[in-house]
């Protein structure tokens, strides 16, 4: 009985041994190495991460032009955010000039032609974000935002002439969504013109709101 059990074990051992010998044939050793297909390990390229440093949008508001009344103002505005503090901005705006009190009272004489009553301006400015932080709206909402100071130079087409114009002011940017910002701001556009006969310094005050998208 005991030798019977031994025989069974021997047969099993032989079978396993033969199987192993067969498996060890040289042909099989040539099989492609059992390399595990590892996922490609790539370093993170920080520069390739999608950046959203540009901001572009439209603005609307009012502009007061000395002697020519206060009128609706519209325009487009784009910015490039250089750092979290600093940005550069380009603007184009257009408004309409009213008749001066003199023109209205005297009745006849028109100082400007209809075409010259369009006031357009271009400007390039540098802005600096001050007081960044969260603003709270009601109980459950917090928005990111910042107050910014801004100033720059450009040209204003006023009374038929292109005039060198400095602008400065401040605004508040509220980040409504990651990609959407709302602005409210005041700017002074300073220029010199002789449209009313003598050379005068004009302070054209802009009060406007803007909606911009980041991309």
């Amino acid at each position: 009985m005991e030798s019977g059990i031994q025989r069974v074990f021997l047969m099993v051992l032989l079978a396993v041994g033969a199987g192993t010998a067969a498996a060890a044939k040289p042909d099989d050793l040539d099989l492609a190495p059992l390399a595990i297909q590892e996922p490609e390990r790539r370093a993170v390229a920080v520069d390739a991460i999608d950046s959203e440093n540009f901001e572009l949008g439209v603005f609307a508001g009012m502009m007061n032009v000395t002697d020519f009344g206060t009128n609706a103002l519209t325009g487009v505005r784009g910015a490039f955010h250089v750092t979290e503090d600093l940005f550069i901005e380009g603007s184009y705006g257009t408004t309409r000039l009213d008749r001066t009190s003199f023109e209205r009272l005297s009745g006849a004489a028109e100082i400007l032609t209809d075409d010259q009553r369009d006031l357009n301006f271009y400007s390039a400015s540098v802005g600096y974000n001050v007081l960044p932080g969260e603003a709270f709206f009601g109980k459950g909402r917090a928005f990111k935002g910042a107050l910014y100071l801004i100033g720059g130079a450009g040209t204003t087409e006023f009374g038929g002439d292109d005039l060198f114009t400095l602008n400065f002011g401040f605004g508040y940017r509220l980040i409504a969504r990651d990609w959407l910002a709302l602005h409210l701001g005041v700017r002074d556009h300073v220029l010199e013109s002789d449209v009313l006969g003598t050379e005068e310094t004009y302070h054209n005050i802009e009060f406007s709101g803007a909606a911009t998208v980041f991309f």
Binding site: I49, F54, L56, V58, V213, F215
Partner: peptide, 20 residues
């Protein structure tokens, strides 16, 4: 040009989705 750029802006956000 600025207006065209503005119109194209949302579209630009769709590609470039490298998110390591």
């Amino acid at each position: 040009i600025l207006l065209a750029w503005f119109a194209a802006a949302p579209a630009l956000a769709w590609f470039d989705k490298y998110q390591p």
